[in-house]
C-alpha cells in the first residue's frame, strides 16, 4: 500500500502544501458526537447530543459554561476540550478581575486559536483533537464562533460539528432566513431540530442524551441573560416545544402536498 511520508508530524508540509497531521486531527472532531450552535439578534444557543459508553453508564458532557456570558460545545477529544475550557475560564476571570469587564468573545476565541496554531508549527506537539463552538454575548451582541484544531476560527450565524453534522448544517442553511428574526425559544427549537436531523433512524432526542445551553441579552433591559445549561428534566419543556413544532411542520407539509 502506498505510504504517505508527509503525515508523521505537524511540522512537515506535503508537496501540495498540506499538513496531514492537522487534517487527521480534524477527523477526530468528526468522530465526536454532534453539536449545533446558532444565533439570532439577541441570543446564542448551543445544543449537543450526548453519548453514553454503555446502557448503564452516564452520558458525556458536551456543553461547558466558561463564564456567565459564554459557553462552549465540544466535539472530539473531551480531555483536550477541558484544557482549552479551563484556559478560557481563567482568562475570563482575569478580565473581570483586572478590568471589571466581561471578556469580549472574539478575543478569547483568538487566544485559543493562537494556542492551537502553535501546536501545528512545532515538533513534539500535536494539534488539539477537538472542535469547539463558542457562544457568548458582549457589548457587540451575541456571537457564535467555530474553532478547529488547525487554529482556524470563524464567526458563524449557525454551525454544526461532529458526526453526521452535515445533516444539521443542511437544515440550518435551509432555515437561515428564519433564524435571525426568531425568538429565543424558537431559536432553541431550531437548534434541536437541526440536531434531530443528524440522528440515525432508531434514535431520538431524550432528556438523557440532549444538552442545551443558552446565553443572550434580555429583551427588555438589554442586560446579559446569564449562560444557562438545560439538562435532564429541565429539557422537558424544550423537547415538548420541539414536538409541537414537528407536528406543525408535518401538517404544513401535508397541506402543501394537497395543494400541489
Amino acid at each position: 500500500m502506498f505510504r504517505n511520508n508527509y503525515d508523521n508530524d505537524a511540522v512537515t508540509f506535503s508537496p501540495q502544501g498540506r499538513i496531514f497531521q492537522v487534517e487527521y486531527a480534524q477527523e477526530a472532531v468528526k468522530q465526536g458526537s454532534v453539536v449545533v450552535g446558532l444565533v439570532n439578534k439577541t441570543h446564542a444557543v448551543l445544543v449537543g447530543l450526548k453519548r453514553n459508553a454503555e446502557e448503564l453508564s452516564s452520558y458525556q458532557k458536551k456543553i461547558i459554561e466558561v463564564d456567565s456570558h459564554m459557553g462552549i460545545a465540544i466535539a472530539g477529544l473531551a480531555s483536550d476540550a477541558r484544557v482549552l475550557s479551563n484556559y478560557m475560564k481563567q482568562q475570563c476571570l482575569g478580565s473581570r478581575m483586572t478590568y471589571g469587564r466581561a471578556m469580549p468573545v472574539d478575543r478569547i476565541v483568538t487566544q485559543i486559536a493562537d494556542r492551537a496554531q502553535t501546536n501545528t508549527q512545532q515538533y513534539g506537539k500535536r494539534p488539539y483533537g477537538v472542535g469547539l463552538l463558542v457562544a457568548g454575548v458582549d457589548e457587540a451582541g451575541p456571537h457564535l464562533f467555530e474553532f478547529q484544531p488547525s487554529g482556524m476560527t470563524q464567526e458563524m450565524v449557525a454551525c454544526a460539528i461532529g458526526a453526521r453534522s452535515q445533516m444539521a448544517r443542511t437544515y440550518l442553511e435551509r432555515n437561515l432566513d428564519q433564524l435571525n428574526d426568531s425568538s429565543r425559544d424558537e431559536l432553541i427549537t431550531h437548534g434541536l431540530r437541526a440536531l434531530k436531523e443528524t440522528l440515525s433512524q432508531d434514535k431520538e432526542l431524550t432528556v438523557d442524551n440532549t444538552s442545551v445551553g443558552v446565553v443572550g441579552l434580555k429583551h427588555e433591559t438589554g442586560k446579559v441573560e446569564s449562560f444557562k445549561l438545560y439538562e435532564g428534566q429541565q429539557l422537558l419543556p424544550l423537547l415538548e416545544a420541539l414536538e409541537r413544532s414537528d407536528v406543525g411542520e408535518t401538517k404544513e407539509g401535508e397541506t402543501m402536498e394537497v395543494d400541489s
Binding site: L144, Q154, E155, M156, V157, A158, C159, R169, L172, E173, L176
Partner: peptide, 9 residues
C-alpha cells in the same frame, strides 16, 4: 459556507 456571518471574520 452560507453559514458564515457576513462582514465578520
Amino acid at each position: 459556507s452560507k453559514l458564515l456571518k457576513p462582514g465578520a471574520n
